[in-house]
């Protein structure tokens, strides 16, 4: 067999494989965005069923974002429509992915990036793997073989599940720690990896291209934030000319009581902590940014329904 023939055979084999993978991706891709349909991070993917161009503020980040920022409280108090596309242990390649997913159907004016994701380590293989999963979803959703139904073989994806918490994950557990000063001033820097910076650059460019203002926000966390990180993020923010709000350094504006406002000893905020963060952030955004109050706008009636559902959840939780 000539070399050319061997190469051609390899190319043909690989092409066939890609076709099979693409076709199986159509089958394995969840057909809706509710938990039961098998979609990953169903709360995050709730953004897919928000009405077109109704989200003004998009929040990205790891668990600190969905534990600390509640869009529905922001809406209740200021009429700002936001959505938290945060997910557990979100790495920057996932942050970038969710940013693009959100912009498929929305045109948010502001994109808030919770900064803890900048410090999540990953390697090149993981980011390439995520890109491959994007092109060939069978790799991401292969485990759905356990729940495949006939409709998976013929149906197209249709996202209908509205998330009333808008990506926020309610948690009222109290597991406090004594209040102490954890932001001790220093000039030292704890830098993030080059890969994280690279993705940050892509996110910044994407926002600029799509006319959204990027804002960096550090949600209070004793375990995850320190002054060295603050210095590094500040440097990055200055380099890109983006605003950086470190709520860990604002005890007067955001008076977190670590004895009661955390669910896991200072790692994540609980609901009372999130309420404090959101109240400040909502006020700040409303007063300093160009955002409309949508509470009395008929187009946003569905938000009032979500607010009702959210309040019901609170009542049930209190009982």
């Amino acid at each position: 067999m000539s070399v050319l023939k061997k190469v051609l055979k390899c190319v043909l084999f690989m092409t066939g494989l890609v076709v099979i993978l693409m076709v199986s991706g159509l089958v394995f891709m969840p057909k809706n965005n509710m938990k039961e349909s098998g979609i990953e991070d169903f709360q995050t993917n709730g953004i897919r069923s928000e009405k077109k161009n109704t989200i003004d503020v998009l929040v990205l980040g790891d668990s600190l974002s969905y534990a600390g920022i509640s869009p529905i409280i922001m809406y209740k108090d200021y009429g700002i429509t936001s959505y938290v596309c945060g997910s557990s242990g979100q790495q920057m390649f996932d942050t970038y992915r969710y940013l693009k997913i959100a912009f498929e159907n929305q045109k948010p004016k502001y994109v808030i990036l919770e900064t803890d994701a900048l410090y999540r380590k990953f390697d090149m293989a993981e980011s390439i793997g995520s890109d491959v999963q994007g092109i060939l979803p069978v790799f991401r959703y292969h485990d759905r073989w356990k729940n495949l139904e006939l409709k998976d073989f013929k149906g197209k994806a249709k996202y209908t599940a509205v998330n009333d918490h808008k990506g926020y994950r309610y948690n009222d557990t109290i597991k406090g720690i004594p209040n102490k000063q954890y932001m001790i001033e220093t000039t030292e820097i704890q830098d993030m990896t080059d890969l994280s910076k690279n993705y940050f650059d892509q996110i910044a460019q994407f926002c600029r291209k799509n006319g959204a203002e990027l804002i960096l926000v550090s949600v209070p966390s004793v375990r995850n934030c320190n002054y060295k990180k603050h210095n590094a993020i500040k440097k990055l923010a200055d380099k890109y000319g983006v605003e950086f709000i470190n709520l860990n350094l604002m005890p007067e504006e955001v008076p977190i009581d670590w004895e009661v406002d955390t669910r896991d000893k200072g790692d994540h905020l609980n609901h009372t902590g999130a309420t404090k963060v959101t109240s400040y952030l909502g006020k700040y955004l409303f007063e300093n940014k160009e955002l409309k109050d949508h509470r009395f706008d008929e187009k946003y009636d569905h938000w009032n329904k979500s607010l009702e559902e959210y309040l019901k959840t609170l009542e049930t939780a209190k009982k």
Binding site: L21, F28, V138
Partner: peptide, 10 residues
């Protein structure tokens, strides 16, 4: 495809 679908990864 057996490995991709039934592999315990991810």
């Amino acid at each position: 495809m057996f490995i991709i679908i039934f592999g315990a990864y991810g």
